[in-house]
Computed example of a mutant assay.
Amino acid sequence: MVAPRELGEGPQPDLWSAATRTTGPAKAPRPHYHGHRDRLRDRAAATLDALPDYELLELHLFRAIPRGDVKPLAKALIARFGSLAAVLAASPAELKTVAGVGEAVARDLKLLHQTSLRVGREAVGRRTVITSWSQLLAYVKLALAHEPREQFRVLFLDKKNQLIADELMNRGTVDHAPVYPREVVRRALELSSSAVILVHNHPSGDPTPSAADIQMTREVVDAGRPLRVAVHDHLVVGRDGVASFRALGLF
């Protein structure tokens, strides 16, 4: 005859296993961002105009980062560079200084920037510059307002004042880009361009023309006059706006 066991003797039942077999394992709490992507997509489908910049950036980040919460990254990018436009204008190396930005994200953001530039250039190129002046100002601001170094660009126009080419003539330092007036005129003759618009940026953000800017512009005007290459304007681009030499009465 087998004697009954006292409590505590021999193997004991696995109470936890028994409980989980009855009730199932405890469920992990849902992440706070659960369903956020679907909600944001629904709002975007209703109206993109109402979305703040960081949410537009989130929607684009979904492409390169297919899972997880990208809202903190979108906000970090805008905080680091100051605006959505500045995020898109940043170089891949600069973008990668933000935690969470890898090769795929940097490439996607630069793709968006380049697409925006081409759309802006196309809008300017389809009509005469005079009748698309607001598009021209928007284009040069998008292209140069957030560049960290000075760039000197020239817009070459035909006899109808339509855009033939937008070319980078020189890239300089944070406060200077060398300009060679004869090179500007030589390139205009190569392209059969009868007029040019000079464009450069001030990385400081203030588009006010400097004394050096005014002197350089006069030299280009003088170099082009004998060869019938006119200078229609000189635009100085900064984060605070675009200054027009012609509007300021500087030549």
Rank of each mutant, 00 (worst) to 15 (best):
V70E: 05
P66D: 09
H146G: 01
K160T: 11
A45R: 14
V237A: 06
V184D: 05
G82V: 07
A50P: 00
I214C: 10
H232Y: 03
G10R: 08
F245P: 00
A104I: 15
E190T: 03
E190R: 07
V184A: 04
V105S: 14
S244L: 00
A50G: 08
K141W: 15
H232V: 12
V196E: 07
Q12R: 15
N201C: 01
V70G: 09
R225G: 01
R67H: 15
S193M: 03
P203M: 04
L57D: 08
R5P: 13
S194T: 10
L157E: 02
I130P: 00
K71I: 09
L142T: 12
Q12N: 09
S192T: 07
A212K: 13
P25L: 08
H34T: 09
H32L: 06
D206Q: 05
T22L: 14
D240S: 14
E103P: 05
E122Q: 13
P4C: 03
H60P: 01
L168A: 04
D38W: 04
E147M: 12
G102H: 13
V2I: 10
L189Y: 00
L40C: 04
F81Q: 05
V237E: 03
A18P: 01
G125I: 05
E167S: 10
A165P: 00
A99C: 01
D206C: 05
V196M: 06
